[in-house]
Design a protein around this nucleic acid. Sequence first.
DNA 1: AACGTAACGGACGCATGCGTCCACTTGCTG
DNA 2: CAGCAAGTGGACGCATGCGTCCGTTACGTT
Lengths: 197, 197
Amino acid sequence: MTHLLRADARENRDRVLAAARELFAESGLEVTMRQIARRADVGPATLYRRFPTKQDLVLEAFEDELAECSSIVYDGSADPDPWRGLCDVVERVLLLNARNQGFTDAFMSAHPDVVDFAAHREKLGRVVSTIIRRAQAAGRLRPDFVFDDFAVILLAGRGLTAAPASTRDAAVRRFAALIIDGLRAAGTEAGTGQECT
Amino acid sequence: MTHLLRADARENRDRVLAAARELFAESGLEVTMRQIARRADVGPATLYRRFPTKQDLVLEAFEDELAECSSIVYDGSADPDPWRGLCDVVERVLLLNARNQGFTDAFMSAHPDVVDFAAHREKLGRVVSTIIRRAQAAGRLRPDFVFDDFAVILLAGRGLTAAPASTRDAAVRRFAALIIDGLRAAGTEAGTGQECT
DNA sequence: AACGTAACGGACGCATGCGTCCACTTGCTG
DNA sequence: CAGCAAGTGGACGCATGCGTCCGTTACGTT
């Protein structure tokens, strides 16, 4: 008996997923199903049998990224210092997104027709909101900061995916640093022993 | 004698340009020549006769934006207070770009095959560099700020074009404000009578 | 008013992506 | 090791964008 895929089928499926991850990361969600099939050395039919719609492929290809996104947020939430937690979340989420054009597209719903991560986004958003509140209560985060600002920052980070890959990480880190400096509550300068990271 | 276009031709040409400006602004440079022709109520041939290549169309369609971009930078450069000048440049350039998806694409060379504004970018970049230097000399801009950081900010602003049009301006202004707060030299808090704007 | 030509736009041939069908191959099981 | 169902990929028909050609229209001149 065997409810599982045949060995060759399983291997093809894995190659398709690997190809999809590579291409999505490099070029975003607008890569064609054909390109993915070609890169995986597989006929179009094979691809479509395993993943009838692009949405199916995207969801599975980004399972890891989604999980990492969650850990980032929960790590930040678990940090006893909410300000440091928030800083980490900002920087790490920005990096994650900048490294993976496709995940950014998906997570920000740049292509709502293809895939919608709104549910995940909302759930993580609530956690981030609590970090924000705690960081403000601790007097470290500017009091006028709201969750929408966080969304704006992520959206802005999206633009950095256009930077050349060689300098992208540096650009993102620099961007995160600039933003974070703009988030401090007045009177809590960096360099006073309170800085983040 | 008449070296000018025939009346109907001129009118069609104008309609094409108007249509192109609208579509580029709404949807970026990837709109098709056909879409532009359709919106202008004109056959494809007419479009291609006036603008043999998309590059030609883009260049003329964004003449105004390019000019405005220049004035923004030169206005900032002419401001006796270099810090205020820099703040204005940042906010206004971000707004200009966020309002016009296509201009952002073109100016940031998101589609180098279609059009390359590198020359303009470089020229304006030099002016911005001088503003940066003067603002730092005045002790208002953080001393570690370099021109590449400015580019990063613009690139990031690009991401905001993905925000819904209804809230885009607000998002951009908020983003600019956050960034600017991150640019101040240590010790020059907002609210001490030195704030920008 | 009549005419020559600038200007027009529909239609063509080409390329590419889509999702599906089907004749052939091959891994698994008995 | 034999047979069958699972698995495969090439090829098809459709849709859309591309840039160009060419028969028709109508502007502006005389």
